[in-house]
Amino acid sequence: MEDSGEGEERRSNWAELTNVCLIDIFSRLTPENRWNSAMSVCKSWLEACKDPTLNTVVNLEPRFESTEDSPGLWTPEFERRVDAMLRSIVEWSDGSLKEIRVRHCSDFSLSFAAERCTGLEILSIMSSARVTDECMSRVAFNCPKLTELDVSYCHEISHESLALIGKSCPNLKTLRRNLMNWLDPSQYTEIVPLDYLNACPQDGDSEAAAIGKYMPNLKHLEIRFSKITVNGINFICQGCPSLEYLDVSGCANVTGGDIDIAVENLKNLEVIKKVNYYIPRMAVHLERYGHWSLYDARFQMDNFRI
């Protein structure tokens, strides 16, 4: 059995570690491990975890990706937790935050981040139901170094925000503006609030026009399940000649032929994901899609999942 004096010595050695040593050790931990473990040990460890060099990135995506979506994630209570975490990291970063990847945040925390972290380069706020155009205008004016933006499933953000971001952030290379599958919304029932689900942005062509006009340097674009038409596809392909990756899967208002024609002049295009949605299984849809052979040009038959 270990001598009590030796145990005390070991504990005191840990307690006497310098702040520089603690920061070096904690830099090897994931943010989640720092939050859930190291920060709760003692005051000196808590202060070390707050060092700006450990808070240049906030990435909660791995946690969200490993967690099944549930109604609890769409509640005001969960949103307040995300907001509190983001605001804390912004304060600790002392303005050095470069990357934010969260979900379910609101204007409350994102405006705070935009005003204090003007060197922000990556912003991903998927499924943030209460982030609005007003907040995104602050992001546009305060964070001109943005190179990557993900505003998927953010229904309160409109084409006006996309235009402002494009005007203010000339180095933007990646945009993700995916929408929920409105062709078969049954997968979201009892998870996403119905009023929010019904508020899905309708004017895909206005968003496409903003992208094509103000984001000429885009290389990666995702607009899954957008209600874009052939006019919108043409706006994008004419205004974004450097595109290398284009995902328009689920865009039911355009055909594969429309897309093939539009992308002809995109010389750098390496990957294109076209319309590949499936027939809903619900019986209510059977009559509508009963004569599926009439729709060869619009539906990619080889990708149907019956």
Rank of each mutant, 00 (worst) to 15 (best):
Cys251Lys: 01
Leu120Val: 11
Ala38Leu: 15
Leu120Glu: 01
Glu270Asn: 03
Asp258Pro: 00
Gly166Thr: 04
Asp195His: 05
Arg11Asp: 09
Glu79Asn: 08
Ile259Phe: 03
Thr30Gln: 05
Tyr277Val: 00
Leu221Met: 08
Arg103Gln: 07
Leu246Trp: 07
Tyr245Arg: 06
Cys200Trp: 06
Ile233Val: 13
Ser70Ile: 01
Tyr277Gly: 02
Phe225Pro: 13
Ile125Gly: 00
Gly72Asp: 09
Cys240Thr: 04
Asp302Pro: 10
Thr229Asn: 10
Glu115Gln: 02
Ala38Asn: 13
Gly257Ile: 11
Gln238Leu: 15
Thr30Ile: 10
Leu183Phe: 11
Pro216His: 14
Ala38Cys: 12
Val90Met: 10
Leu172Ser: 14
Ala297Pro: 00
Ile100Tyr: 01
Leu194Gly: 01
Cys42Val: 11
Tyr188Val: 11
Cys200Ala: 13
Glu32Asp: 08
Ile23Phe: 07
Leu183Cys: 15
Ser226Trp: 03
Ile25His: 15
Met282Glu: 07
Gly166His: 05
Thr189His: 15
Cys105Arg: 01
Asp83Tyr: 00
Ser44Phe: 08
His220Pro: 12
Arg176Lys: 15
Ile223Asn: 02
Thr189Gly: 04
Asn198Trp: 13
Glu2Leu: 08
Ile228Arg: 02
Tyr214Cys: 14
Ser111Val: 03
Gly95Leu: 06
Glu244Lys: 15
Ser206Trp: 03
Gly290Ile: 01
Ile259His: 00
Thr118Ser: 05
Arg305Ser: 08
Pro31Glu: 10
Glu47His: 08
Glu148Lys: 05
Pro185Met: 06
Gln300Asp: 15
Gly7Ala: 00
Thr147Ser: 13
Glu6Leu: 06
